[in-house]
Design a protein around this nucleic acid. Sequence first.
DNA 1: GCCGTTTTCGGCCCGACTGTTTTCAGTCG
Length: 610
Amino acid sequence: MTNKEISHLLRNVAVAYLLKDENKYRFQIIAYQKAADAIDLSPREVKDLWKEGKLLTINAIGPKIAEYLEELLVKGKVSHFEKLMKDIPKTLFELLSVPGIGPKKAYKLVKILKINKEGTAIEKVKNAAEKNKISKIEGFGEKSQSDILINIQSFKKGQIKENRMVLPFAYEISKDIISYLKIIPEVIVAESLGSLRRMASTIGDIDIAVSTLNNNKVIEHFCNYPKKERLLEKGETTASFILTNGKQVDLMVQSPKSFGALLQHFTGSKQHNIALREYALKQKMSLSEYGIKINNNSLVSPKSLLNKQNYNSKTKIYEFENEKDFYNALKLQWIPPELREDKGEIEASAKNKLPNLVSIKDIKGDLHLHSNYNLEPSHDLGQNSMQEMLEKAENLNYQYIAVSEHSPSVGNHTKKEIIDILKRRKDYIEQINYSHEKNKKNTVKKIFNSMEVDILINGEISIPNEGIDQLDYYIVSIHSGFNMQKEEITKRILHGLENEKAKILGHPTGRLLGKREGYEADWLKIFNYCAKNNKAIEISAYPDRLDLPDYLVKEAINNNVKLVINTDSHDVNQMNMMFYGVSVGRRGWAKVSDIINTLSYNNFIEWIKK
DNA sequence: GCCGTTTTCGGCCCGACTGTTTTCAGTCG
């Protein structure tokens, strides 16, 4: 049973409680929803955690739900859940995936339309709407009937939240909307927030915040965006539409005086905001996108935390122009957006112990570059010459780079041919370095002679020992045989890293966002090996990969593993993508000292030799 | 049903928008 199936079941349990007695079961409903959220966000399979006896390590899962999950995984069902859902038609749950239909409406629809046959609910509701039957039902009307039809249509087209975007795609969309918004002078500031600001690996919808003194004007302008397909809602402070490509865009506007509170609110994550508000509540403060409210009979003297000048006596809210003051008012350090996932950042911030995160300016080199030097490789060559990549590295102010084309294909070459190719390439790189060194103004001191070497199915690497002698060091990565058992693939990776010149494990999980899951490996074992033997694990900045994933970055760091952030560029423009990889590092709580390519040129040479 | 700066009991985030209503319920983020 997958995490998705389990969380779906728990959400249905929450729905069942809600339909049974919303007030009586208020907190059970929340508990089940929180548990479902936690499972959705869990990087580990619930099934595995259960086998390891670690179900309770998931926050929001306590003894009771753990017991039910155990029953579920053993018997395939839970008698308590079955009993709870006995009176609720199963068809009801099918309707919940249609936007705008929640538990109450779904219940009415299945009851009144007598929808009993599983798998037919959405189609039956659609038919009923087309025959004008829904508008007659109490609580529904003409508008909600036509809305249901539209929403069923877009649901069928696959325009659902689960279809997430990779970062550059989301960036382009948001950039376009923001520059459109800025056409009118009423827009003082426009920023993209939500998961894009937090630099999550994939983005569901685009969230935009605007600071303005004229809400109406801004919202009107936003709603006239030319690439809008249809409007979802339009109010005094928010508006939403669907783009022609099916993606949703949400806008929130706020006066400059409270813009800091809005930034905080709209950046999320949902989990971070809930945790932050609960934290504030303990100090008798209530948070919203408008600011901070002091609750009655507060034990805390407002003066100690909040600046009187920010007090709006009309709304009784303390307002914040910037986010830092907002967090500071809660006696917290400002928390970088990448950390806002309720993964311990609030606690760390309260103790002044947030990590000093690595940033793009700390990066001194890119160690995974594919030039167009033709060594008849196993996989694709790059588009640009080594010289062009060197020039780009100068522009980026790097101190060093490494070219690391794919190793020559084993199928088409003899061992001797491979060695000859690598010898010629070594001479070539030396020549470039020689002429580059002459210009003392250059910041790049050297191109390192590296290579991306395949770890073959049997764990052997794809170049012979004499070929290795031609290299400064190399990256190993897996490009085939992804469907191996966990133990096998772990062994394969460790074997691939054995040689002392194998210094980096490239795009370690092999995932391709939205296309291919990464393979399961025993990461703890790999981390321990790497920490002990001075191997670095790559964070691929390539936006379709972002691999190592952020949660494994955090685990790697906790196990003293060094990481390296590389772009895996196949042309010079891709070298600009370093930023995405740095963000993954930041989301994994990486400091400068955790990242190898923040080392100076001399220290990096020392590291290679270790 | 979960969880812990003070709490193993007594709390549980906060607000916007829409449609169907005549003041609010339902849904969403």
